[in-house]
Amino acid sequence: MSKEKLTIEQVLSLDLPNIILFAAPIMIGLVALEWFLSYRQKKDYYDSKDTLAATFIGLVNVAMSAAIKVVTFGIILYFYNLVPWSIPHTWWAYVLCFVWIDFWRYWAHRIAHENRFWWATHVTHHNSEKYNWSVSFRLSWTQHIKIIFFIPVALAGFHPVVFFICHQIAVLYQFWIHTEYINKLPAVIEYFFTTPSHHRVHHASNEKYLDKNYGSTFIIWDRMFGTFMPEEERPDYGLTKQIKSYNPITLNFHEWADIVRDVKNSKSLKEAYAMVFTRPSELESVKAQFREKEKVKV
């Protein structure tokens, strides 16, 4: 017997709790506490303008998520209804769904670092030279298109309610790992879970740390797929080519603007394609190759 298809009205009528919205006052309070402690202890963990920019970016992001709620629900619901099977709405479904979501969060995150188009949806999170709890608010205003990476979760048959609750918890987990105040944790935790130590490496601009530790909640995916790197010396944070701005518009769209400029300056479709989809860390060498080819033609 085929499952009963759900409608968007049915899902929205459930009035799902916005876990992140409920947690927001606690997160903001912890940011204020961390900011105060770093000031009292004369640590360089915060920059006032940087924190205000991050907070503004985060608030706009929350508003955007609410505004496009029906669209994101609709996409997941469409693919859930597409398959004839479903996973029972039970407690263990949440456990399985959380792990399955985390697997796809790893790949979405990795692709966002290894493909320039997707990097443009993520770079905002990395263009701070500080590392503190406010950095967790810096989520690009164009990141919402990454919902396509989670279609496999719906196709697996997880109920949309299960998906959205697990996804919110996964996003919320990211908050606490953005701090320099928490050192390495016991080995068993460090082995399985993404910790502040692991994520500091991920935010580093040091060459040895680049493109490492993509794990969202579980670091085991990095260990399995060869992208794990332990924290050694304290990282330098930010981009390899840093953006000196506190303007939220610039912080969200500077990479998109650079892509448009590079495509306009391209001499061929092949070059234009490369300017959009090449690996960000290889961009300058790819540009140099195309310039050399132009010289040869002349």
Rank of each mutant, 00 (worst) to 15 (best):
residue 59 L to P: 00
residue 60 V to S: 14
residue 62 V to C: 11
residue 62 V to G: 15
residue 64 M to A: 10
residue 65 S to R: 13
residue 65 S to H: 14
residue 66 A to E: 15
residue 66 A to T: 13
residue 67 A to H: 00
residue 68 I to V: 15
residue 71 V to E: 11
residue 71 V to D: 13
residue 72 T to Y: 12
residue 73 F to R: 02
residue 75 I to R: 05
residue 75 I to D: 07
residue 75 I to Y: 07
residue 77 L to P: 09
residue 80 Y to T: 08
residue 81 N to G: 06
residue 82 L to R: 11
residue 83 V to A: 06
residue 85 W to Q: 04
residue 86 S to C: 03
residue 86 S to P: 10
residue 91 W to C: 02
residue 93 A to C: 11
residue 97 C to L: 04
residue 98 F to A: 07
residue 99 V to R: 00
residue 100 W to H: 08
residue 100 W to Q: 06
residue 102 D to E: 01
residue 102 D to G: 05
residue 104 W to E: 01
residue 104 W to G: 03
residue 105 R to G: 10
residue 106 Y to C: 11
residue 107 W to P: 05
residue 110 R to D: 03
residue 112 A to I: 07
residue 114 E to M: 05
residue 115 N to S: 13
residue 116 R to H: 02
residue 116 R to I: 05
residue 117 F to I: 11
residue 118 W to N: 02
residue 118 W to A: 07
residue 119 W to D: 01
residue 121 T to E: 08
residue 123 V to Q: 06
residue 125 H to T: 00
residue 125 H to W: 10
residue 127 N to Y: 03
residue 128 S to M: 01
residue 128 S to C: 04
residue 128 S to L: 01
residue 129 E to K: 15
residue 130 K to I: 11
residue 131 Y to V: 12
residue 131 Y to A: 11
residue 132 N to F: 06
residue 138 R to T: 05
residue 138 R to H: 04
residue 138 R to F: 09
residue 139 L to Q: 11
residue 139 L to V: 13
residue 140 S to N: 08
residue 141 W to P: 09
residue 143 Q to A: 11
residue 143 Q to M: 02
residue 144 H to M: 08
residue 145 I to N: 10
residue 145 I to Y: 04
residue 147 I to Y: 09
residue 148 I to Y: 13
residue 148 I to F: 14
residue 151 I to H: 10
residue 153 V to S: 00
residue 153 V to N: 00
residue 154 A to C: 06
residue 156 A to M: 14
residue 157 G to S: 04
residue 159 H to K: 08
residue 159 H to L: 07
residue 160 P to T: 07
residue 161 V to I: 06
residue 163 F to E: 03
residue 164 F to P: 00
residue 165 I to F: 10
residue 165 I to K: 07
residue 166 C to W: 01
residue 166 C to Q: 06
residue 167 H to R: 10
residue 168 Q to D: 12
residue 169 I to R: 08
residue 170 A to L: 15
residue 172 L to P: 10
residue 172 L to H: 07
residue 173 Y to W: 15
residue 174 Q to L: 11
residue 177 I to T: 08
residue 182 I to C: 00
residue 182 I to K: 09
residue 182 I to N: 01
residue 185 L to W: 13
residue 185 L to S: 04
residue 186 P to A: 10
residue 188 V to L: 14
residue 188 V to W: 15
residue 189 I to E: 07
residue 192 F to P: 01
residue 193 F to W: 13
residue 193 F to E: 13
residue 194 T to K: 00
residue 196 P to F: 12
residue 197 S to H: 02
residue 198 H to E: 05
residue 199 H to N: 03
